[in-house]
């Protein structure tokens, strides 16, 4: 599925009277890797949650192609994420009691009763990412393999947009580089829009665009 363009304007989110995010404008092109960067507390994760519709801004628009998700209700934003987005987390957040295959199929069960139609795709994704699908629990996989299961889970619905929150932070350097390369490939080769909140310098070097944040505001590019 081709990536979606993003156009953000006048985005503001305040908490307890103070601005948490104040972003006048941001544009992201499809098929690119964008890194949201900044120190801890800079607002990079908050901006990621706003762009994915997990948080709703006080003002402003977040237009993914034709859909301004800032205008959508909660259930519509849930549906938008189910249909258009995949999510990758720092600690993978896999379901340990499930096999790698079942973990990959979780997003399908959010929408449909049977995941049989996607079973072969899930197996293909796991094979491409070099993860043993036959293990009965993801807890038996290495951390790098677990993160690749999480990437397969994010890709099972063939999403246009991939959100990743510190995807390499809990991995060793070598595994982190592998995951970073996968994310870059998802953007460059598959044409998806990839947005990553991270402080990983490797990812920054691979990014097509870096949004540097400080206290919720975008810092000018160096």
């Amino acid at each position: 599925m081709p990536g979606l363009p993003l156009a953000v304007s006048g985005l503001r989110l305040a908490f307890a009277g103070a601005d948490v995010i104040d972003l006048p404008a941001l544009a992201i092109a499809p098929g690119t890797l964008t890194v949201l960067s900044g120190a801890s507390g800079s607002g990079k994760s908050t901006l990621l949650y706003l762009l994915s519709g997990l948080l709703r801004p006080d003002t402003g628009s977040i237009a993914w192609a034709w859909a301004d998700i800032a205008l959508l209700g909660e259930s519509q934003r849930d549906r938008w994420r189910r249909k258009q987005a995949g999510f990758i987390f720092q600690n993978f957040h896999l379901i340990e009691e499930m096999s790698p295959l079942d973990n990959v199929l979780v997003p399908i069960w959010l929408d449909r009763f049977s995941a049989n139609a996607k079973r072969q795709r899930a197996l293909d994704l796991l094979r491409q990412l070099d993860v043993p699908a036959e293990r009965d629990s993801v807890a038996k996989l290495s951390r790098g393999q677990q993160q690749r299961v999480a990437i397969a889970r994010a890709l099972i619905g063939d999403p246009s947009v991939i959100f990743a929150d510190e995807p390499t932070a809990s991995l060793d350097a070598a595994t982190g580089e592998t995951v970073a390369a996968v994310l870059q490939r998802l953007a460059r080769e598959d044409g998806r829009t990839v947005v990553v909140a991270t402080h990983d310098p490797t990812l920054k070097t691979l990014a097509d665009q870096t949004v540097q944040l400080d206290h919720g505001k975008r810092e000018p590019a160096p």
Partner: peptide
């Protein structure tokens, strides 16, 4: 609760 939050992030509806 983190598991349920992850499911929401993946697009699970409150009904789910």
């Amino acid at each position: 609760r983190q598991r349920f939050a992850v499911l929401r992030a993946l697009g699970a509806s409150p009904l789910f």
